[in-house]
Write a protein that binds this DNA or RNA. Sequence first.
DNA 1: TATTTATGTAATCAAATACTTACATAAAAT
DNA 2: ATTTTATGTAAGTATTTGATTACATAAATA
Lengths: 110, 110
Amino acid sequence: MEKRRDVFQAIADPTRREILCLIAKEPLNLNSIAENFDMSRPAISQHIKVLDESGLVAMRKKGRQRFCHIRPQKMKEVDRWLEQFRQLWEDRFSQLDQVLNNLKNQDNEE
Amino acid sequence: MEKRRDVFQAIADPTRREILCLIAKEPLNLNSIAENFDMSRPAISQHIKVLDESGLVAMRKKGRQRFCHIRPQKMKEVDRWLEQFRQLWEDRFSQLDQVLNNLKNQDNEE
DNA sequence: TATTTATGTAATCAAATACTTACATAAAAT
DNA sequence: ATTTTATGTAAGTATTTGATTACATAAATA
């Protein structure tokens, strides 16, 4: 009965992105995570719930604590989406080149 | 007086991600973009405004049309953020290995 | 000049977000 | 058994989001 969440929506919030950075180094329990933010514990708890539902993190119970682990495979999904744009900035036609090129094409059209 | 938008918030919406895919191939004007969606033109117009404010797209006027170009350098920002996680899935300690490893460490702790 | 076309903008509105405080529960420590 | 600790959950709320329809404007076209 787990609600499914969009990965992109999950990383849209800056607090959630910070949480991901924190636990990328090492798994942390909820209170340890909350200590890093100027925000109530339930607020953090809810953010983590969103991350959990998106599949970006996995929770593991250990006694009365719950550790938050990052799930690299899910992060990779974002990377795969980016893949289709990657050549745009890796090409010789990157950035300025591309802009100038587009401008030139426009002027020539029609 | 341009409002500044978060790139991650901009790509959080599926419609906006689709728009980015569309214009990655070639710049399109607003109506051409709107044709691809089952949604009113003003709705698309507002989505494009968000993309514009985030810097992910640039608008170029051409007569009474406005063409929407992708800005690869801004897409790259997302890629740079992902960078810090990339080794997590490229490592020999990826996915299952990593989970098992973390579990083992947990069991040993304390 | 009048009309069509491509677009912007305003007013609305329902739903989702991101918080808060207060209370509930379950495991560990006393 | 009681208390403390780590966490979940509910209720309430202000703000933001994502959409709509209706109207405005500016460039191309007849």
